[in-house]
Design a protein around this nucleic acid. Structure first.
Lengths: 146, 146
DNA sequence: CAGGATCCTGTTTGATACTG
DNA sequence: CAGTATCAAACAGGATCCTG
């Protein structure tokens, strides 16, 4: 799918079809993707990052995790933790005790993500006020236009 | 970190219900949330980050953006760009020309996000191989158990 | 060109109930 | 305790048609 542009037609656009802007040195480029889609598919869901944050603090058992994340259902926790395990971000250790005991822990790969997450958290804390202000302003402007 | 979990782990440990973990100095904590949920709600969707990346390269008109992001519908572009505007991450400038012309540009707040996004992209590029490897291994292990 | 309004879809998530 | 299985709700996203 996608198969590039179907740049046929070119109705009223004479020349200069592409070449958008590219003023100076873009901090991040790649035309479009990169691997951003990738990370987002991995961290963009509702729980993955929260689970990672909790595991960043140390080993957790299943129930522990569920209590810690607060709000997550055991179904979602299972799915989330399974995907993280599949991606090599966490390890799952089963202790064959009488009441089953399973421990989850971040791999070094998972820990490397922690720094990114911290970046996100920091940014959020730093700019939340401005965002909320902008949002209030926008909402107000939506009510009483001129 | 990795300050060695307290070797409690009594095999059939009856008591010790709560008392989670909190071993050493976590890189990121806050017990659970912080503002991570916040950022994720803003960047976790399918298009926001891609649009931001495009706008990081400079001013774009609506159609330009749609062509650049490739795959996005004008509905989604509208919604995405509106939300970004509401949050004060982009500005929307309407030029009352004959064919309407609207330009979108990152605010400084939006630009500050760019660094974060770059972090995500870098991480993805750096670790994608390991993740894919882990994934293949997991999938293989799922087919032939013993 | 820019975008609003609808309709319709697959995916994500949550609530239970059941098992080893 | 640590899951699995099912079902139904919620939602995000896409396609299309229609304005100014």
């Amino acid at each position: 799918m996608s198969a590039g542009h179907t740049g046929v037609t070119a109705p009223t656009a004479p020349a200069v079809p592409a070449a958008p802007a590219a003023p100076a040195e873009p901090v991040v480029s790649c035309a479009d993707d990169c691997g951003i889609r990738d990370v987002l598919d991995r961290l963009g869901d509702k729980w993955s990052v929260l689970v990672i944050v909790e595991l960043a603090a140390g080993v957790h058992r299943f129930k522990e995790l569920q209590r810690a994340v607060d709000g997550i259902s055991q179904r979602m926790l299972t799915l989330t933790v399974r995907r993280l395990e599949r991606d090599g971000l966490v390890t799952r250790t089963v202790h064959p005790t009488v009441p089953p005991q399973v421990e989850y822990e971040l791999t070094d790969l998972g820990h490397s993500l922690t720094h990114l997450v911290k970046g996100l958290a920091d940014w959020s804390l730093a700019h939340r006020p401005r965002i909320e202000a902008a949002r209030r302003e926008w909402d107000a402007r939506a009510d009483m236009p001129s």
